[in-house]
Design a protein around this nucleic acid. Sequence first.
RNA 1: GCCGGAGUGGCGGAAUGGCAGACGCAGCGGACUCAAAAUCCGCCUGGGGCAACUCAGUGAGGGUUCGAAUCCCUCCUCCGGCACCA
Length: 867
Amino acid sequence: MSASADLGEFMPHDSYDPHIVEPKWQEIWDNEQTFKTPSDPAELASKPKFYVLDMFPYPSGAGLHVGHPEGYTATDVVARMKRMQGYNVLHPMGWDAFGLPAERAAVREGLHPADITKRNIDTFRRQIKRLGFSYDWDREISTASADYYRWTQWIFLQLYNKGLAYMADVPVNWCPALGTVLANEEVKDGRYVETGDPVERRLMRQWMLKITEYAERLLDDLDGLDWPESVKEMQRNWIGKSRGADVVFKIADSDLDFTVFTTRPDTLFGATYCVFSPEHPIVAEITTAEQRPAVEAYVKEAAQKSDLDRTDLAKSKTGVFTGAYAVNPVNDEKIAIWVADYVLMGYGTGAIMAVPGHDERDHEFARAFNLPIIEVVSGSDMPIEEEAFTDNQDGVMVNSAGKDGFSIDGLKVPDAIARITTWLEERGLGTGRVQYRLRDWLFSRQRYWGEPFPIVHDDDGEVVALDESWLPVGLPAIDEYRPTEDGRPPLARAGEDWLRVELPDGRTATRETNTMPQWAGSCWYYLRFIDPHNESEPWSKELENYWMPIDLYVGGVEHAVLHLLYARFWHKVLYDCGWVSTKEPFGKLFNQGMILAYSYRDANGKYHLPGDVEERDDGTAVLKATGEPVESQIEKMSKSKLNVVNPDDVISEYGADSMRLYELFMGPLEVQKPWQMKGVEGVYRFLQRTWRLVVDEKTGELNPRLTDAPSSTESELERTLHKTIKKVTSDTESLQMNTGIAQMMIFVNEATTAKALPRDTVTTFLRLLSPYAPHLCEELWQRLGEEELIAHSEWPDYVEALCIDDTITIVIQINGKKRDELHVAKDTPKDELEKLALASERSQKFMEGKPARKVIVVPGRLVNIVV
RNA sequence: GCCGGAGUGGCGGAAUGGCAGACGCAGCGGACUCAAAAUCCGCCUGGGGCAACUCAGUGAGGGUUCGAAUCCCUCCUCCGGCACCA
């Protein structure tokens, strides 16, 4: 035996090496523009379309973590399969590039936000490209480029021209730490959701978008969408539709009156007092001299409280009597008027009628201030003084007879609501009305790194929308991104030559210095992908008509109300303008679950890098260096917990195909699950076994077990192949990729030990695996002598008959417990199965000589004998 | 408090009315090796038994059914969302 042969024995010279295979095929795909989507409508028309979209990322400075590519991998697998199935596939990627973090980094590093953003995009693009996704990179867009935001400004003009954008002095969420206002959707518990900085209420002149005008359509059209029920429910809650009535109350001994909104007009006879929000303008007018000092003090105090304080103090109710009385329109009773901050100025009319008997908040308030409680709906188990009775279905009205012989006594609540609403309307005392929780969208920010408005203010203070021909309104260069000392937005720092404008009619004007919020660019990016280089229009209507709606949209659930609601709103406006052909943009939505990671903390609470920790067999973990025990937990990945998993590291060790496969094999796409590096090793081994089906590692030649003989339908392997085609096709379609991959593992395990390995069987299998592990499959496909790319090959079909075994196992149960099994031909008739089951030795044993009372035969599955 | 979702081996998970634990990880045993790695084969829910086998088992309790992880009721725990919205 020669020395070189010895080396061959011990050092395979052609084992699976993703670091050679992957760059090779990425270069080929790039050079051949393998994934370029045609842009010529005539060329597109010959095939059906499939538009599969990822929620494009905000390119943060931290780069990608393994959570990002989970959704991207799923959509890429679908995109690749659909292409092989003969669809034109639109599968683009871009960058949601405007936003606060880049501006803050710019201040920190002394760079321009555009440079920070470019740097971050370059990192993201490099990381994403390493995963071998089949994006059409010719369609890459960035919301911060003038080619793009020119059309964001154009859409704003459409909104403005339809009267849907307006300026108003509104109470805004002002965040002092950031020096800007925020939308309601961005504030939770009185804090900015991203940074946790406190937010306070201020009155400011701001741009608003009339999303409320679309509330009903935004609500109704949810019904037809193939979205997770939870997201639809969150949007429904956010829109917050409630039906009720406006009721007019007169102020006693005065000409004044006021309106309250209530969802329970049936309880009007139980109204024992009214409450105004401290901001309600009528408060100052009606307060009596005696009560004035107390009321003024209370109103002032409420005004100074931030939203945070007001929510924090929610536990016990506060309020002050105004000294004034209202007249209950149903019975002319005089009831006290109070001021309390549990009534919000921003919802309904800012005033309520209080029914302590049947509303928990009113009950609590009445108990605190000793106000009367009257029962008007019967059916409670508890005395009405103890607990409010809030049932609104089966309760029956009592104590509800008033003037003119009017009574709703004896009616159930829903009937009572209808009856009293009609009665109020007939007398002009009220009207039935629908109320939404949704408010108009606060659309301006005091920031630099955002889209400038295509708006100027002329020297008389009038708002002037610029003509389309003036677009884009570019961001001027400025050297400081903070608001000015007198509180104007950063753009006010731009020079006069940017700020000052002469209009065509000779008027002079000053530019709007607010910018649009981060959400603007992402409201319509999916439309620009359709026609990204169009210079004369935002997109071609013909192409829009072909591609829309989006067939699959995948992203995180954190956008359930923000992005997804705003984008639907803009889309509906564009629909009304005739620019889009569908009422809804996103036909099917899928939320991928968050990927968590193990973190390790010592007794002092200090986090340690996973690399410094050793997992013991008994399940405990210790520091490698000192042996000190550490506690492991599964948490959201974060820098501070030292548990962020970087895809670059995973690819360097195992390759992109293993990374892709593991992302999908971890578990169901929609659930949260922890990253486990050992799991990547498992799928890596699977890919190595696949490699060895084709390549003899010692010689580098094809596996000698491969035969050219046609695959036999008789063979077990062929049956497994057809079952695999069936399962992978349906599991890919329904995004249940973990079980599809498991089935491919079963196939490879079987093929590894099969006697014969027909070449056809292997090439068919490679086509199935290719959307998941595209680099490996291209390589093996080529080695098997195929000339086209596997990406351009046809998706395999299965033969149903081959998915069912000829001989099947029938379980025999006695009283529902498995006792034996039968191996019979697949079409064995029912009575034959019953006979065989009863004859079985083990059946006899467990029937203990008793006769069968009943025999249930489920063909193809089991026989259950009841004794 | 209200609205969603979920609870299955040591771990990720599979099975959505019909064989509980597919597939993978970890672990254990074996083959190959001087040895190790890699690879291949086997075992791997718990109790009892040398074994054949047997009993129990899908958060807890009850119900429907010939048959329940799966459907229904009550409760517990965890995750997510909303929360003075009249």
